[in-house]
Deep mutational scan, measured.
Amino acid sequence: MKGKVVSYLAAKKYGFIQGDDGESYFLHFSELLDKKDEGKLVKGSMVHFDPTPTPKGLAAKAISLPLE
């Protein structure tokens, strides 16, 4: 699924993505496929991810940034 980063707290390594389906997904650095892309996780960045339901809500897994 595609989505847009709505927040990312680099110090805490987490944030949120708004998916194309309108839902909010929890984003964690550990799910970023290329850790070098962390600096690109800023508000408004477009990402691809696997939407995954968890006991705490919806989460983004296997997060990647589109090729530039």
Rank of each mutant, 00 (worst) to 15 (best):
K2R: 13
G3Q: 00
G3C: 03
V5A: 01
V5M: 04
V6S: 10
S7M: 15
L9D: 15
A10M: 11
A10H: 11
A10P: 15
A11Y: 11
A11I: 11
K12D: 06
K12E: 07
Y14L: 04
Y14D: 02
G15R: 00
G15C: 03
G15W: 04
I17Q: 00
Q18T: 10
G19P: 01
D20N: 09
D20C: 14
D20E: 13
D21K: 03
D21C: 04
G22S: 05
E23I: 11
S24A: 09
Y25V: 02
Y25S: 00
F26R: 03
F26W: 08
F26L: 06
L27T: 02
F29H: 08
F29P: 06
S30R: 11
S30Y: 09
S30P: 03
S30I: 09
S30L: 09
S30A: 09
E31L: 04
E31S: 08
E31F: 10
E31K: 05
L32K: 00
L32E: 00
L33N: 07
D34C: 11
D34L: 06
D34R: 07
K35N: 07
K35I: 08
K36H: 12
D37T: 08
D37H: 08
E38P: 03
E38A: 10
E38N: 04
G39L: 13
G39V: 14
K40D: 04
L41S: 01
V42H: 12
V42R: 13
V42L: 11
V42N: 08
K43C: 10
K43Y: 13
K43V: 11
K43D: 05
K43H: 10
K43W: 10
G44P: 02
S45A: 15
S45D: 03
S45I: 15
V47R: 00
V47S: 01
V47Q: 01
V47W: 04
H48W: 15
H48P: 00
H48F: 15
H48I: 15
F49R: 02
F49G: 00
F49A: 00
D50N: 14
D50F: 15
D50C: 14
D50H: 15
P51A: 10
T52L: 13
P53L: 14
P53E: 13
T54E: 05
T54R: 06
T54F: 05
P55N: 09
P55W: 09
G57D: 01
A60K: 01
A60D: 00
K61H: 09
K61R: 12
K61M: 10
K61D: 02
A62L: 09
A62G: 11
I63T: 03
I63R: 01
S64C: 10
S64E: 06
S64Y: 14
S64D: 05
L65F: 14
L65V: 14
L65E: 03
L65H: 04
P66S: 15
L67N: 13
L67T: 13
L67Q: 13
E68C: 12
